[in-house]
Design a protein around this nucleic acid. Structure first.
Lengths: 189, 189
DNA sequence: GTCTATATAGGGATAGAC
DNA sequence: GTCTATCCCTATATAGAC
């Protein structure tokens, strides 16, 4: 096994533990034990605990950043863009639900430039999302509720998918996408 | 100042810090510093760090438990019950947004009986919520999407309110309730 | 690539003076 | 009710043998 693979194994194992207890409560001994080795051995593959966290979070944040920019640049209306954003979140959740726990709950433990970089991406993501909703309202495609409430309620559902999805083993991704789009955009009543 | 007041001050200060960094990353020295005293002095008012956490979480969980039981026992239809649940979450968030961060993110650091007690209340809360949605679907008041998706998307929005509300200082609670009910129940489109 | 041993720092909590 | 001093434990990380 090449070092890069072993490193990724460690990062994946860490993501599972971080999801269960949070970054701060997981020790390098916990992580080593989950890998079946001693804590000191981890340092042959990674430089620090912090490096593991930034690896998990930054790659995910960049995925969302790339995704929403590509969606935003497409020639579609606001509703279609929101549908694409919902699909983006579902796709990322299917691929890396564990890592999303750190993205959502442990980003504040990033250090220095990584923290600033994360915060910048998050701000830009929300700005694009907000702009899409505003355009949709102006075009008459979206009802004229408070923009912030719409952005918040939609995003909080999408961001929490990682908690919920693993418990619904049987659910079909296509059904999930369809019903999630319906529930979020067309309401329950 | 009576000891009970001082104790509550400590718990309130702790809730703010737990919200910012999470239970595990906040030290008793951090908390003491926020109170303007030394760490050892905290122990004149509280027995342990764990006691602070359980105070924050258990009282909030009991509030939700009482609230949803009372709503569920009222003679109203599913939609009216859901509206009341949304109001319940908004009311609790207005009163104690800081504590809700611990309820949502740090419950797994509860110990022994408190952990079991919390998990029981949470399970019962979700069961009641799910039963209300199911009744609403059977009565034809709620569209026939996947029940779990409805429960999840609604609850995740309500549970995340604590993150979002403090940033919207100007928003009127009544407008918030009205628009939140509209967005969650009637959709965006 | 993993181990044992260890350095160094900081955690929660207590004792006892004031 | 708060302080200083301190106990004991565990954290991240490194050094060097195998």
């Amino acid at each position: 096994m090449k070092p890069e693979n072993r490193k990724q194994e460690i990062i994946n194992a860490a993501a599972v533990l971080f999801k269960e207890k949070g970054y701060s409560a997981v020790t390098m001994r916990d992580l080593a034990s989950a890998m079946g080795i001693k804590a000191a051995s981890l340092y042959n593959h990674i430089q620090s605990k912090q490096e593991i966290l930034s690896n998990i979070i930054i790659s995910l944040a960049e995925e969302f950043s790339t995704g929403i920019n590509s969606i935003n640049n497409s020639e579609t209306n606001a509703i279609q863009k929101l549908e694409k954003i919902i699909e983006l979140h579902i796709d990322v959740t299917l691929r890396n639900a564990d890592g999303l726990a750190s993205l959502n709950n442990d980003w504040m433990h990033l250090e220095e430039n990584n923290l600033l970089y994360y915060e910048k991406m998050r701000r830009e993501y929300e700005d694009i999302f907000r702009a899409i909703v505003k355009k949709g309202i102006r075009a008459g495609d979206i009802k004229t509720y408070d923009v912030e409430i719409i952005v918040f309620s939609t995003l909080s559902t999408l961001r929490t998918l990682y908690l919920w999805y693993p418990k619904q083993k049987k659910i079909n991704p296509e059904l999930l996408k369809h019903d999630m789009i319906s529930v979020l955009l067309k309401g329950l009543v």
